[in-house]
């Protein structure tokens, strides 16, 4: 059983729930940017939640199946077709040998997740099948899929077509998108007026938004607390002695355009960070398109933990709905 790539889309990669444990060597966790959508797609086709599927950004691929199977597409709202016939999202779909899965233009969100019963069975690299293109590691030959590739699929276990994730449990980003942020790290480096301004201003996703990080524009330039730059930090007030970067951390080079690091983050560098997007909102970023209006909302650790519990409950509800 395999999947033949007729057209790869813009950038479609094999992803699972990531490769923890190697960030100290510069290899990021990777994996689906919208973890919840990836898990739901796997649950729909009877896979373990951490099975590998495909993540396609902005433009869907065109795929042919070499045997009868069950597939599911979750995440962004992008019309789904099997042999030209419209099919529902967030639903386990039966496809026959030789049929072609394709997509129309994206309506809402940014990334779709395609799960195939049995999972995409590329070799495991450092504990994961996720693609890390910079290191040519994992995925299909360490790169995005290309026309003519034939992706291996594992043995399916009890996939049933017809099941759906209830609509109330399909969460995408709102408009404007609110991203909750726990201030910290080098927050003390900016003036109080800028601390308040960051949360007051209207921001927009910039064109430079990918698996490594999302850049934002539109808010006021941050003012720094004056200091003599420490030895080894570099001369710009936004420079620090190179440190680690948390996933979700918000760096602001030169104080102008915030960048939120995502699943394929660089592991460290010399720009100060003002805080971190909480874990519960990381999936949402994966569904943001360039130009999406954005507000940053300040939260406490207690609120972050509550949001995390809410997110875990949502996943549990999806699991329960699909039993």
């Amino acid at each position: 059983m395999g999947v033949r790539v007729i057209n790869p889309g813009l950038s479609t990669t094999v992803q699972d729930l990531g490769r923890p444990g190697y960030f100290h060597l510069g290899i990021p966790i990777g994996g689906a940017m919208d973890r919840l959508a990836m898990r739901a797609a796997n649950l729909l086709v009877g896979n373990p939640e951490d099975a590998a599927g495909l993540e396609a950004v902005f433009v869907g691929p065109q795929l042919e199946f070499t045997a009868d199977t069950v597939v599911a597409v979750t995440g962004a709202d992008m019309p789904i077709k099997v042999d030209g016939e419209q099919k529902p999202g967030w639903t386990a779909l039966e496809v026959r040998k030789g049929q072609v899965l394709s997509f129309d233009f994206l309506n809402k969100g940014a990334r779709i997740y395609i799960a195939v019963a049995g999972g995409i069975d590329v070799p495991v690299a450092l504990g994961s099948r996720s693609t890390y293109p910079i290191g040519a590691l994992g995925g299909f030959k360490g790169r995005a899929i290309a026309a003519g590739d034939e992706l291996p699929v594992g043995a399916a276990g009890g996939a049933k077509a017809g099941r759906s994730v209830p609509e109330a449990l399909r969460r995408g980003p709102g408009r404007p998108t609110e991203l909750r942020v726990l201030p910290g790290l080098y927050w003390h480096r900016i003036a109080e007026s800028s601390q308040a301004g960051f949360f007051e201003d209207d921001w927009k996703v910039a064109p430079e938004a990918d698996r490594m990080g999302y850049r934002f524009r539109g808010g006021r330039k941050l003012e720094f607390v004056e200091r003599e730059q420490p030895f080894g930090a570099g001369s710009d007030p936004s420079n620090i002695v190179d440190s680690c970067y948390p996933y979700g951390s918000i760096q602001v080079p030169g104080g102008t355009e915030p960048i939120i690091l995502h699943r394929d983050a660089v592991s460290g560098g010399g720009y100060f960070m003002i805080g971190t997007v909480i874990s519960a909102d990381m999936d949402l970023i994966g569904q943001m398109q360039p130009n999406t209006p954005t507000r940053f909302v300040q939260v406490t650790m207690e609120e972050a933990m509550k949001a995390r519990a809410d997110r875990a409950r949502l996943l549990q509800d999806i699991r329960t709905a699909l039993v």
């Binding site: 910290g184 948390p246 951390s249 971190t276 909480i278």
Partner: peptide
Amino acid sequence: YSFGGDEHLF
């Protein structure tokens, strides 16, 4: 010491 969100201690 500072927290980087709810999953990192910096």
